[in-house]
Each structure stands twice: as structure tokens, then as C-alpha cells.
Design a protein around this nucleic acid. Sequence first.
DNA 1: AATTTTTTTGCAACCGGTTGCAAAATTCTC
DNA 2: GAGAATTTTGCAACCGGTTGCAAAAAAATT
Lengths: 334, 334
Amino acid sequence: MAVTLKEVAELAGVSRSAVSRTFTDGASVSARTREKVEKAAKTLGYRPSLIARSLATNRTKLIGLVANNFQNPAFLDVFDLFTSELQKRELRPLLVNLSGETSPRKIVELLRQYSVDGVIVATSTLPTSFATAFQTAGIPVIHTFGKFQANANVHVVGIDNEYCGAMAAQTFAERGYKTVALLGGPESATSTQDRSTGFVQTAKKLGLDVAKISYAENYTYQAGRDAMREVLDDRRVEAVFCGDDLICMGAMDAARAAGQSIPEDIGFLGFNDIGMASWDSYSLTTIRQPIRDIIMSSVELVVGMVENPGRSPEIRLFPCSVIDRGSLRPVTDP
Amino acid sequence: MAVTLKEVAELAGVSRSAVSRTFTDGASVSARTREKVEKAAKTLGYRPSLIARSLATNRTKLIGLVANNFQNPAFLDVFDLFTSELQKRELRPLLVNLSGETSPRKIVELLRQYSVDGVIVATSTLPTSFATAFQTAGIPVIHTFGKFQANANVHVVGIDNEYCGAMAAQTFAERGYKTVALLGGPESATSTQDRSTGFVQTAKKLGLDVAKISYAENYTYQAGRDAMREVLDDRRVEAVFCGDDLICMGAMDAARAAGQSIPEDIGFLGFNDIGMASWDSYSLTTIRQPIRDIIMSSVELVVGMVENPGRSPEIRLFPCSVIDRGSLRPVTDP
DNA sequence: AATTTTTTTGCAACCGGTTGCAAAATTCTC
DNA sequence: GAGAATTTTGCAACCGGTTGCAAAAAAATT
């Protein structure tokens, strides 16, 4: 069915090598041969088979993109950006849906079988060991949105979740909130743990009372709504820091359903700044992470890794910022 | 780096063919040989290279998944379902982000170079010719969410958009609306065109007055909000049929911002039934398409195509249903 | 035990490219 | 225009598997 090197070579009256060389950049071919070959290739509609090339060069131009949060709208941007950035560099994303799977073994095997050039693990919930497993198997890997550790043994691109938690406490303090609550994402997620730590520590330091800590079961509206009930039990709570915008919106609706108004009776601070955060019905004040920067950087890094696998592990952190909308009361004058 | 057939063969004391055969199901190997090979493979950590296998068998187990709507939450489900269904069958999705691109040429070349076994074009906006281009290039293709035509020349799995438009008109009539409007998705999308046709025709038939027809520029909240302004100019409009839930939510907020209440002053009917449709703030009555069924069927079909490329083009349509929530007034008693 | 039938095995060619090497062709120098 | 230096070219081996075919081994039949 497909046209091969050989056929082109015959039509052009040259050797197979010559054809191969015209399609390999940096190879030595005279202008005349190149012309003949290109003409023949065009008339036959020839394209080199990347599979065959991969076998010979040991490069597939495939990048494994493994993710486990297909429910959250925040990941729409992630997919969009990753795919288009990779495409720009002539790389192809091989998408792996982790779903419940949390052990790296099978996934590593799988991507090894496809000889992917590199892997991007895009999740804020899994421990570093997940990404490390690829490294151990000799596959260049980046953990995007991952937890960073001082003694890094794997590339991480993302944010400082602990610091973001601190930012949240700071934000509450600036607006004069005294009694606050934390409504995190799933407790097993590393990002949840880090944000909690930062939040609680700094709250204490600033003299805030963290009256309630609770966790949503997953990153959904419904989980947020459910988890909020617990928080509502404590009528003293003036503001809630949520581990995710979607969870936050569920929580807001739970509060409203209980007759509270936002931000007069209770304030909300979200996380991620998804598109919906700016909708009229929520107008959510939230902490934005610079997703675009994170992803651009991840792609650059994975390309760098492929070219130079020896690179030592690097941590790249980007600053987050509070996007002020209407779900918290304004900063109190000093 | 990687362990090869040859090394396993040597360790096991058999020929390379024997090793190959133990890893190919349906091949003839004696129990004793298999055992020796498996042991050797385990100690070496051998996995057959799918790239090399592909070259020999002409099967890659890669399925191109091409999509162009990475903004819409409706696609989260789509990605989730496609990836997990494909994974179940040991197939890998190679994701292609069409973004603005609307010509199939480059994409066909690209997927041809990767020798994908099949392609799923998942979009409701592109004309049939897009999918046909793959067919012409000899690549099995399914157009999921595509426009179907009586003289089908390509597999289509999805819904009857024209009929859905008619359902919408019917739904309005049942509830006693007289003067209605259509706020479609982008005008160039085939699904928009079909739904409009069905809606307008049936509205006329049922004696409804379609006072206004307008189109959002893309499938976003903001576009819906903007497009709704036009509709609001005509104060007679009692209900609006939107081409997409996200657009609809934007439109609802525009109406509310203009002081109208839903459903008392104006009713809304959405399309897709995305997760947010059931949120308190919208409680959107909408037409649901059975995404799960559509995708399961698409995957089955693409597998069928790979096994038997000669299959003649098939149309598979699934029924939609109205999910009744709170954005339309109730059915009037007869 | 000899013969026939069936199963298992290894050989060798092939899938469609790349690439080191040496020969051939071209270009440069004087 | 001869010789040296450089560029281009084709040969052949290789990447890591699969598979048709015939020989070898095992099982079944007499």
C-alpha cells in the first residue's frame, strides 16, 4: 500500500541511501540528486515511515502524556497546551489515562514498549516515586504539577504548594478574617497535603483560628458540596480556603443553599482560576497558577532531556497570584 | 539499553523465532520451550518492542484521536471515555489537536507517517469531507459526532442533529411557548446548521414564531453571553434554544444581568448536559446526547474497521433525551 | 517397530528505514 | 592538466522483530 524508499530510489535512478539522505536533515546530498529524488517522491506521494525510522534511529518522537484527572476542567487547558506545544516541535503526545491506577509499573512497561522518547507525568496528586519509576527504567521524565523536594531525583515543574497555602492564609489575614476553614482536595493528594501545611502554619503565625479542616473526596462540584456541609456545622467560620475551584463552587452553592450569602456571611478562596471562576454566578476570588508557563517549560525541559539524558534533576517553580473577584471581602485599610 | 529478542534467545538456548513465537499469541510453541523462554525473558526484563513488531506486522495499535474543541468541558468526558476504552483494548490514542486547522491534508500525512491503525475524528463542527480524506488515504476512519448523510461514504457515529433541533421546538411547544429564539454555536459548524434546520422547520410546523436567530462565535461562556445581547433586544422572546450548554450558561447570565429571571421571564434549553448543567446556579433543562454509548460504539467500530477494512460505511445514530430541570416552565396540561 | 501424521523448531528473508565506510566524482590548488 | 582535498554516492550491515517453509521431533496409527 504505502510507497517505500526503494520505489522512490528506482524511479529517481539513485540508491536507497540517496533517498534516505534527502529526507534526513544534515545529510550530504548534492543539489542535483536531491532534486531528482524530490521529484520522484512527489509523483509517488512518498513519506518516510516514522516507524521504520524509529527502529533505526532509536527515536520515536513520541512523548507519553500521563494524567489522572480527566474530570476537572482545569485539565482542558492542560491538554490543549500540551498537545499544541508538542505539535509545534513535531512531537506527538501518546495519551495515557491513569484513572484509578496509582502504581507506575504497568504504565512504565507500556511506554517502554512504545519506546517513547520521554514522558510527562501531569498530576498534582501522585508522589514523586511515580515519576521516578520512569527514570529508573531509563526513560526521560518530567513531573509537571508535581511535589518538589529539596533532594530532587527527578525533574519537577510546577508551583510551591506550601507557599500557596501560606498565601491563602495571608490573604485571609489582610481582609480581617479571624476564624477560617480549610476545605482541601482529596487528602491523599500531595498538593493537598502541602497546601494544608502551608496554610495551617501561616494561619497560626498570623493569629488566625483554623476552626475546621476537611477534605473533599475528589475534584468535583458534588464532592465540594458534600464536604461543605461539615464546615457549615461550625457557624463561626468566616472564610473557607478551597483546594480547587470546582470544589469551591460546590462549597459555595452548599453555603448559599444553607441561606448564607457570599461574601457577606462567608468568604471563599479558590485555587486554579478555571474559566468558570469568572462567571457571574460565582465571581470567585482564587489563586491562579500560571499553567501556560508551567507547560511551556515542561515541554522545553522534556525536549532538553531527550537531547541530553544525563542532565541532573531540576526544579522549576512558578509564582502564583491571587485573582481578586467577589468572593472575599475587600482588604481592610491598615 | 533495551533487551532484545536475540539476548533472550541466547539465554534460553533457543532460536529467535522461538522467542518471538512465545510472545505472539496463536503461534505454535511447545510448553517446554515457552517455559524456558519465559524464564529467560523474566530474568532479563524483556518486553518486545512494539516499534519493531509494527514494522513487521504492519500494525501499530495506535489510533489517531483528532479533536478541535479543547475548550469545552463536554470534551473532558470524551477524552476520558476514549482513552479508557482504547486502553482496554490495548490500543493507544495518539492525540492530535486541530486547533484552528481545518484542512485535513497535513493531519492525514502526519498520521500516515505514524502508520496509525485507525483514526477517530471527534468533532461536530467539521464537514464529512474531513474524515473522508483519511479514507481516501487508506486509513480506516470513524467520524464521531459527525454529520450523517444518506449517501454515506464514511463511518459516522453520533446523533441526528436535525431531529434534536426538532425535539427542541417540540419541547417549547409542549410548554406553551409561542415566541422563541435560537442561539446556536458557531454558524460554520455542521451540527449548528442541522440543529437550526430542524428547529426552524418544526417550529414553523407547530406554529411557533422564531423571532430571532443568532450564533455564538465559539463554544464558550463569553461567546454565549455576548450573543445573547442581540436576542435580548427583542423583548417578545419567551424562550431560547442554545446550541451548547456552555453557551447557554453565558446566555442565562446575560439575561439575568438584564434583570430577567429564569424561567419566569425567559426560558432556556441547552444542549449536551455537561456536569455543570445540574449545578444550583443554572439548573439547566437540556438535551443530552448519550456520549458514553457513542464513544463505546465508535471504539468498537474502529476496531472492526482495522480488522476488516473493506466494511462498507455505516451510520450509527443514538437517541437524545430532554433532561428536565428548572430553566423552562413546566409542561402545560393539555 | 516401522510408518504415517501432526506438532515444533530453526533458517533465512523480510518489514522500511539509517549510517559507517570506502570508492567514485567533483572541486580546488598550483 | 596533474595531484590533492573535498564532497557525494552506493554497498552492506544493522535496528528488533515476524513468518513461510522445510527439516526435525514427537505423537499417533498400524
